[in-house]
Write a protein that binds this DNA or RNA. Structure first.
Length: 457
RNA sequence: GUGGUUGUAGCUCAGUUGGUCAGAGCGCCAGAUUGUGGCUCUGGAGGUCGCCGGUUCGAGCCCGGUCAUCCACCCCA
């Protein structure tokens, strides 16, 4: 039999030990901030029933769902002719009833409805788990990646938005990433659609103007034309794109332009009150009202948030927003939620690029005992037990290999200290402790090793 | 789903118009140092040049196909 070439699916990655300790540094930081703000952790299964997932992310989103083939004889009673008549995608729904989660928000909404009687509202939860998208991978885009979500459900208060933005500020401050927080409100976008008389095209309009910064006004107008919006109406949008100045000034201009749109007025009011709250928080990060911010997920209804790292080209590293009726589809009406999602993998890429990881993030065990043979190893083992029970990370090299090899190993694994207890030392009743950074060696009595290790910690 | 890029040693890559073109650096192993890592020096192992086919006296190089990869678009963390 030919040997298999090892490999993993496109867009997925292995994480080695050093990578993992850096990733954990990110997860721990985010977790700590979430907990400080009173969010409680939950987990949900990797797979959901497909009907939980379908239709929540728009047409594009549905296509990007990984579907799981039913077990057993799933073709029994399957009409093969429908494969040709309705296409593979439609036919797949007949033989797949499960799918991998696409984000953490929709499973959360499902969780809330299913457990509504065990939950105290407003319910604040966080969740750190992988999600999967059958996208074509590219820079900063993976098919399996981790999201770190915090959501509050069951409260309309803008204090929740403020709290989440506070969390964003704290997380990126602790990680050392300079970010710009962009804010908008879907109701303002709806107001804009009203304003040009195309309320039903809100989705097309927002997707188009989302690209304003990236592709320029001409390309946006072109796209709007393709979506069937008249030149005259496009012309009415121009003054909106021209809105500049401080957040307040932008809001004032918007109030003028959108004064006849009820949702526009509503959204402007919300944005204004949110800005008032943020002023109190004295955030370190810049935050900015950006009316070109749209965000693709179509369950958002109010505030929308996006965070970009300032010193790299990697796209958005955190996003979120308010969704007024995500639980409605699962049978729990009139419950509003708001949440943010940190993209751990992109945050990793940003920090790696900018070399923001502290050195400790990659460190391993502190102490390694050299193995000189059976008798010496037994002696070291007895010392190892004491270190372990004192909570000090230490290990004994498992084989009596050449000293050179053992030291190279200790070097490669970044041990801080190496303990040498060979025949000579055992006779003298002493240990040699070698500092792997300075190269210095000191003689230490076995009874003093623990004290020394504690001191050096 | 659309367009493009690149596939040569474990890794990063060089290879000039098809004719000593099977190479470098790093890593790995061994030795200089029979109980001392990182630095230095010396030596060594390791590749059917992604895969299949075609053109040719001759293909890593040209052509076709295929697979993989990365990048961009769509969309998104």
């Amino acid at each position: 039999m030919a040997v298999q070439k090892p490999g993993i699916p496109k867009g997925t990655r292995d994480f080695g030990p050093e990578e993992m300790s850096k990733r954990n540094y990110i997860f721990h930081t985010i977790k700590r901030v979430f907990q400080r703000h009173g969010y409680a952790q939950i987990e949900t299964p990797a797979m959901e029933n497909l009907d939980t997932l379908l239709g929540k992310y728009g047409e594009e989103g549905d296509k990007l769902l990984f579907k799981i083939l039913n077990s057993g004889d799933f073709l029994q009673g399957f009409d093969l002719s429908c494969l040709q008549s309705s296409g593979a995608n439609a036919a797949s729904l007949l033989i797949c009833e499960k799918g991998l989660r696409y984000d953490l928000t929709v499973p959360f909404a499902r969780f809330v409805v299913q457990h509504q009687h065990e939950i105290q509202f407003p319910f604040k939860r966080y969740q750190i788990q992988p999600v999967w998208r059958a996208d074509r991978p590219q820079k900063g885009r993976y098919r399996e990646f981790y999201q770190c979500d915090a959501d509050v459900i069951g409260s309309n208060s803008l204090l929740n938005e403020a709290d989440l933005i506070h969390i964003i500020d704290e997380v990126f401050r602790e990680l050392g990433i300079r970010v710009k927080i962009k804010l908008n409100n879907r109701r303002i976008l709806a107001g804009i659609a009203d304003y040009i008389g195309q309320a039903d095209k809100i989705s097309d309009i927002t997707v188009a103007i989302d690209k304003l910064e990236k592709v320029g006004i001409e390309a946006v107008n072109q796209e709007l034309r393709l979506k069937g919006i008249a030149d005259e109406e496009i012309g009415k949008l121009e003054p909106l794109f021209d809105i500049r100045g401080s957040n307040r000034e932008k809001l004032a201009k918007l109030s003028e332009l959108l004064q006849h749109s009820q949702s526009g007025i509503h959204g402007i009011g919300e944005a204004g009150r949110l800005l008032d709250l943020l002023d109190v928080l004295q955030l370190q990060s810049d935050y900015e009202l950006d009316i070109s911010l749209a965000r693709g997920l179509n369950y958002y209804t109010g505030t929308i948030i996006e965070v970009k790292a300032m010193d790299t080209e990697i796209g958005s590293i955190c996003g979120g927003g308010r969704y007024d009726d995500l639980t409605g589809i699962f049978g729990l009406k009139d419950i509003s939620g708001v949440g943010v999602s940190f993209g751990a993998d992109r945050i990793y890429d940003v920090m790696d690029q900018l070399q923001l990881f502290p050195v400790e993030a990659a460190s391993a065990s502190r102490i390694m005992f050299v193995n000189f043979g059976e008798k010496e190893a037994r002696f070291c083992l007895s010392l190892l037990v004491k270190l372990h029970s004192a909570g000090i990370a230490a290990e004994l090299y498992p084989d009596a290999a050449k000293l050179k090899k053992q030291l190279s190993y200790a070097d490669a694994r970044h041990f801080r200290y190496v303990v040498l207890a060979g025949e000579n030392e055992m006779q003298e009743g002493m240990l040699i402790v070698k500092d792997m950074i300075s190269g210095e060696q000191v003689r230490v009595a076995p009874d003093n090793l623990l004290e020394m290790a504690k001191r050096e910690r």
